[in-house]
Amino acid sequence: MAEKRRSGVAADPKSAKAESDEEFLSQAGVGALLRGALLKLVEARPEDPIGFLAEHFTNEASETESSGAGDGGDGDGGRDGDGKYQDAQEEQQLNKALWHLSSAHHSQRSAFNNNIRVAYDLLSQCGSARRVPGGVQGRLYTEMLRCVCSDSGLSETAAAPLLRHLRCHDYEVVSFELFRQAVLTCAAFSEYVRRAQCLYAAVACCPEQPAERELCDAVLNALREALDTSHGPDATRYLEASAKISPAELARAMAKTRGASREQEGPSMDMREFEDAAAALFIARVRVVN
């Protein structure tokens, strides 16, 4: 590529195409392309902007190329080959959708919402032969949520209960609002589990030994109370809930149980159990889709 740049610098008779630089750029659509890229970049603010742009442009290019190829391929071709082609295309769209979702953290809410929209549009274009009007197929939706969970580091067993709440039938069509809620829930859940793991590590005083059961129970209770804060307008609820699980409050709860039981070596609780208990608190508050 670099060599190409060097060769043929001046010799080409460019006068034949006497369009100005600006005309050329606007005709080729460079402005729109760059504007889109910059917007994405500023929205996501990735740590490695060059890698981000490389992936972004690669995605864009394969999108335009595949849409061009898709137009040609619709006409003929055997049933069998067509089906395979569909599957490959579906997987490609799924990967693209996942990539879009991963480019912004869910706390960057406007960027994240935008990306969900892009992902939704990508997935609703899938399977043109078996096209369902007006949305994403249930099968793709469930597959997508599974991928979101595993990509964000959740183990399959940890994700399974949540997915049971969120999944829908393969033949159903998923609306955007449900899609958005579900993706957001998965992203928030995986973060929640990560935090729960940190919490457990903090409760267990040294990393080799499991934490004491009583302390864990105290912390889980505090967590439950915080999640149960359900009256009043949103803003006050958030403040109240976060006050209930502030470090000082947790320390107080833990100190209280310590005070009640004097003996040193109580029964313990391992990481797995704590994590499951914390996850259950979260999942109990997720509405079942079906």
Binding site: A2, L33, L53, A54, E60, A61
Partner: peptide, 14 residues
């Protein structure tokens, strides 16, 4: 294609 050009450019930068 313009898109492919930018993709190639940034991949080589990366």
């Amino acid at each position: 294609g313009i898109g492919r050009y930018f993709a190639e450019y940034f991949t080589s930068v990366k």
